[in-house]
């Protein structure tokens, strides 16, 4: 690493991320992947508000999981009032 002294950030200041922090990608922590059953989902947004990693979004096509950051904690599955989210072992997937 070669940074000239003038380019070293002042007092440990670093830029703020806008929509995601790519310095800490946590998707690889996951052992179980949330899968949505779109037929059961009522889009009540309870899973969206309960996700500690802001990894659920309400898109026009329904709820979407951000698997780049989802840690697989399973809160979404637990809070869903209609049981539309299931957790599938990560090893069942090829990607």
């Amino acid at each position: 690493m070669s940074i000239s002294p003038n380019e070293v950030p002042f007092a440990g200041t670093v830029p703020s991320p806008k929509t995601e922090n790519e310095g800490m990608i946590t998707g690889s922590w996951r052992t179980r992947r949330p899968i949505l059953d779109a037929d059961k989902c009522t889009e009540c947004l309870i899973c969206w508000i309960s996700c500690p990693d802001s990894s659920i979004k309400a898109a026009s096509s329904g709820m979407e999981f951000n698997l780049k950051y989802c840690k697989g904690c399973g809160i979404c599955n637990e809070v869903c009032p209609v049981g539309a989210i299931s957790l599938v072992p990560e090893l069942d997937f090829e990607d």
């Binding site: 991320p17 806008k18 929509t19 995601e20 922090n21 790519e22 310095g23 800490m24 990608i25 946590t26 922590w29 996951r30 009540c44 947004l45 309870i46 969206w48 508000i49 309960s50 996700c51 500690p52 990693d53 802001s54 990894s55 309400a58 951000n66 780049k68 950051y69 840690k71 697989g72 904690c73 399973g74 809160i75």
Partner: peptide, 25 residues
């Protein structure tokens, strides 16, 4: 209501807190 809650996130994904962290939520 939840539908009126702001969509924007200012505490964005990508942090080292444990899975299911209450303080992070």
């Amino acid at each position: 209501s939840l539908r009126k809650a702001p969509e924007e996130e200012y505490y964005v994904p990508g942090h080292r807190t444990c899975a299911g962290c209450g303080p992070a939520l």
